[in-house]
Design a protein around this nucleic acid. Sequence first.
DNA 1: AATATTATGTTATAATATTAACAAAAACAA
DNA 2: TTGTTTTTGTTAATATTATAACATAATATT
Lengths: 215, 215
Amino acid sequence: MEENRKVPAVVIKRLPRYYRYLGELLKQDIKRISSGALSQKMNVTASQIRQDFNYFGGFGQQGYGYNVEYLYNEIGKILGLNDGDTMIIVGAGNLGRALASHSNFEKRGFKLVGVFDNNENIIGSTINGVKVMDIRNLEEFLADNRVDIAILTTPKRAVQEVAERLVKGGVMGLLNFSYAELSLPHGVAVENVHISDPMMTLSYKIKQAREGHSV
Amino acid sequence: MEENRKVPAVVIKRLPRYYRYLGELLKQDIKRISSGALSQKMNVTASQIRQDFNYFGGFGQQGYGYNVEYLYNEIGKILGLNDGDTMIIVGAGNLGRALASHSNFEKRGFKLVGVFDNNENIIGSTINGVKVMDIRNLEEFLADNRVDIAILTTPKRAVQEVAERLVKGGVMGLLNFSYAELSLPHGVAVENVHISDPMMTLSYKIKQAREGHSV
DNA sequence: AATATTATGTTATAATATTAACAAAAACAA
DNA sequence: TTGTTTTTGTTAATATTATAACATAATATT
């Protein structure tokens, strides 16, 4: 029932996975689940599940388990989903366009309100119902529209400058897909996604398997 | 100099980041670096860097530090990069096409040898110099070509079946971008990439910042 | 050549994270 | 009901990970 311990980052990182699994259970119309049953499905220990949830006070009931819908919603609240956070995508290349069409963001409660690029040939076109705007009009847009999150899919050389402009314009969080690592004022939330990292990890695992080690 | 301790997964996960940073240093023609200097750039402790490298025997010299190129190459070897691993992409939707055009994979030594889809309109077209093939010909292709890694960007409903066919065809590692989590025989290396997970983590951080907690 | 400095590899210590244990509470069964 | 089973929240024990400390060796300096 203790609520004020600082929640370790490693616990926070696990919440999205819990959330996804619980969403699946919901779809299957499963009303309740025990930590033991969930642990089997998710391949973690029941103890860890209970411990994790307990950082937030615990959401279950002895002898019963957890109400799936309630738990799902509570984790969503912890993560700040469905708060109506808005996002823009900066960089309408292959990856930017793919992400713009990615319906999962909407499913998690994030609303795409703009896409920006500097390529004349792309500016003015529409992706997933959203107009691609000129990056030169970024400041104007940010002044008129609240933007919570920006997804960065620009080339490496552009990303630091763009990030600074976004922060200056009031954007609170950046999801950085570019290769460069950003240095920004304290207080700006940044998550880096380097898609070749898991590829390299995979390469290591394969090598291990080839050499007869367990994977 | 100890080499046979089991290397913790958390250390392996850090290697790609070291590798990327060292690649940057190389480009800047920096020949040597100390754990202290590297730790500042990467925002980790020097102790951790030395400890991490020591799992593999250590690559430095007392009083000198690390030779950047040597260290870069050694980490590459540990990760099994530039071993000529081949890869295919299954699912030529927005994300699959974006990944096919993603030059970083090649930079890390992975060679794209095929793209598969089931959409008649896409089959036969070319992405990044590689022909999109009919998924029905997957087995035939795998019989004729060694494929080490498959990137999965199919819709969720298709991914488990495709994964099984790939494994049967001899593919050793899967990089799964689809929402579903795969259950596969022991010994198959799998890395899951759920791009909405870091988005949710970011949402949490923003919420914390709004509530006045440090990020 | 002698000394001071640098910086590793490695061991020791501290901090975190995971798992196990279990009392208390609710659900279920007889 | 009453007793038995289930299953949580929570504390205790263990294991893992990160940091600090330092002896040793190479480099740099005088």
